[in-house]
Design a protein around this nucleic acid. Structure first.
Lengths: 365, 365
DNA sequence: GGAATCAACATGTGCGTACAAGTTGATCTT
DNA sequence: AAGATCAACTTGTACGCACATGTTGATTCC
């Protein structure tokens, strides 16, 4: 090991900095002196400092942040360079998915990443296969809409495998209850449903039927908001007035239930629905039975989708910032990837939706 | 994916050089122009050239030898069986995209492939970047919805590069006119529009306004079907009765035109629209002006999307087997990949759509 | 007390220059 | 003809300057 005294200056500086880091005198996360001060310290030009630093950035020792400074990186695991991010959704419908994926793509593609897309069709076994595929494909990170998130995840081992491979992941829309300490970006579903029910109560409605999805956490949270809003409105909770459905019977159970309730003569004042898809089905059913919305029955949806906008009656719905949600998840993942886990207070992001009042609710006569 | 036109100069040069190499205009082993001459060619400083070159050296594209020159490296060892298929669409909207991607995914995932998804936002420059990305990511094949397919493709070299890398691709929805010998799966757009116009003529309508997109081949073909149907119905073609629009003015031009025509007193009997999005906009405009659909004006859409189903009046539209189209493209690509190109007679698939008659057209009094 | 502003400082981009040092091929010398 | 020399090219190192752009925290203003 000959220490060539005639090394170029930029190599000398590079070796010095690398040595400081390898010996632990500069620790991961720590800021190194600014380019200007390094230039002064070594009596070389800033240009030469930048050359030394750029090599160390390329070798994965440093990272620099515009306007802030240059920082020592954690080199415990070497980075892969596939520049691919896996995205696992539950569905690829025209309902929420397109805008969310647009948001994700706009951020990722701008940062040179590509999306590998998979969907589970809300089936736990498919989720397991998707995760295995992603592990094989050496993606650099994952954005996951959890499947059947109301239940404890059966794929816990696979998520742990992601951890041990150093592949970070961000949940979107919800999270598994046994993975609640992981990063996620979700809506405040309870608050959204709360505002819808409070609004209907304020219009004088007493018998407010609720339709909720029972196999994902969004459904449970929306139900919780429903319960809280009833209590705060001094309306007693009636289990017979609540319909819980699963993915498998979403096409039939809600409408059958509402039809039976109306035909048996016990008509409700209003229906709050898990989402616009259900609300739209209920709307079509009610109008098909000769009743008028909102004159006879008020209806609210959730997600503020095209279904709430394009129909014969515009549905009052709870907003869903779909694109923003996707962008937030992508940005969070990129932050984690770049080692900026100082953003621990941004790991769990909850976006509060708003009630968008349109034409499907009316004061009770 | 927004393509920043204000890229730094060194990035522009980097992208240029990378593109030349990916397209095979600079071959492995070949020497690139000297730093001095590149600086002259791009009227930038040598310093900036060096910055661009140093990035490409780091990425493994180039190697430089002191005193001799800088040379293109062989990147062939990068290729392997990734089990990834690239999918490039024009948009990621909720309109047609979700069902097409569902169809593609259902076939590909069943065969163990994953989708790498990108979209061009119907911008040729973005298409170029998407193709370059895909070349780098060693996908095994590509499904491409062409961008601005009415024009000759400006990315011919990149498509040729795909060929020379042995990466097969299938066009969907349309094809570039200078790539018409490549495999594709498309709709018979002319036949679809023909049936809509013939139907309206059969209802007694004489003045049938047509709205067509002029920058993709679907629009041109639908226009052609319109022209043929008028001729076969013995209605003379009136250029003032036809509106052509581009991606960039789709939001304003069609509706403004129709509004002006109605306000100037020259009302049309019927409007055939490029797609349901336009038809829905026209529908909202017409009703907003106090006219009734279909009593006063008949309207047809195209694509048989949710927009034709959920509105106050169900729009008569031309079917679009979105999911089947995606599946057909994926199956064709898999056939080509497995070497079954004996199916040369299946390389160009044209699916004939049908007119779906609903409630937005009526016999002329 | 909170919002807006701004100066100081960080990195990023880009130009100019100069000279060092390795390679090549033509020319000169013997 | 063989070897030395040298001019003309290449890339490598190093300096200087200017301005753009992003971040931060102190200050000011309402």
């Amino acid at each position: 090991m000959t220490k060539d005294i005639n090394q170029p200056k930029y190599l000398k500086l590079k070796e010095y900095l690398k040595g400081e880091m390898l010996m632990g005198r500069i620790k991961p996360g720590e800021q190194i002196p600014s380019e200007h001060s390094l230039a002064e310290m070594f009596t070389i030009s800033r240009h030469t400092v930048r050359k030394a630093v750029s090599i160390l950035i390329n070798e994965g020792y440093l990272t620099s942040e515009h306007g802030r400074g240059t920082y020592c990186l954690d080199r415990s695991h070497k980075r892969s360079t596939s520049r691919n991010i896996g995205v696992i959704t539950t569905y690829m419908s025209d309902y929420i998915f397109p805008k969310v994926i647009q948001g994700i793509d706009s951020v990722l593609s701008q940062n040179g990443y590509s999306i590998i897309l998979k969907n589970t069709n809300n089936d736990t076994i498919n989720e397991s296969n998707c995760l295995k595929d992603m592990l094989e494909k050496n993606v650099e990170g994952l954005i996951i809409e959890p499947t059947k998130s109301a239940l404890f995840s059966r794929n816990l081992e696979l998520f742990k495998a992601l951890d041990s491979c150093g592949i970070p992941f961000v949940f979107i829309h919800g999270y598994h209850q046994n993975l609640e300490d992981k990063p996620y970006v979700i809506l405040d579903d309870a608050a959204g449903m709360y505002s819808a029910v409070r609004y209907l109560a304020g219009l004088g409605h007493k018998k407010i039927t609720g339709i909720f999805k029972a196999d994902d956490i969004q459904g449970l949270n929306r139900h919780e908001g429903y319960v809280r809003a009833l209590a705060d409105s001094r309306i007693s909770y009636d289990p017979d007035n609540v319909i819980l459905f699963h993915t498998e019977d979403k096409e039939v159970k809600p409408v059958n239930f509402i039809r039976d309730m109306i035909m048996s003569g016990s008509r409700m004042d209003a229906v709050v629905c898990y989402n616009d898809e259900i609300a739209f089905k209920v709307f079509q059913l009610v109008e098909g039975m000769g009743l008028k919305v909102p004159e006879d029955i008020s209806i609210t949806g959730f997600d503020d989708s095209y279904l709430s906008e394009n129909g014969a009656v515009r549905l009052t719905s709870v907003s869903h910032p779909k694109e923003r949600l996707g962008m937030a998840a992508a940005e969070l993942l990129l932050d984690i990837l770049s080692g900026r886990n100082d953003a621990a207070d941004r790991w769990q992001q909850v976006i509060v939706p708003e009630l968008i009042i349109k034409d499907s609710c009316k004061k009770r006569q």
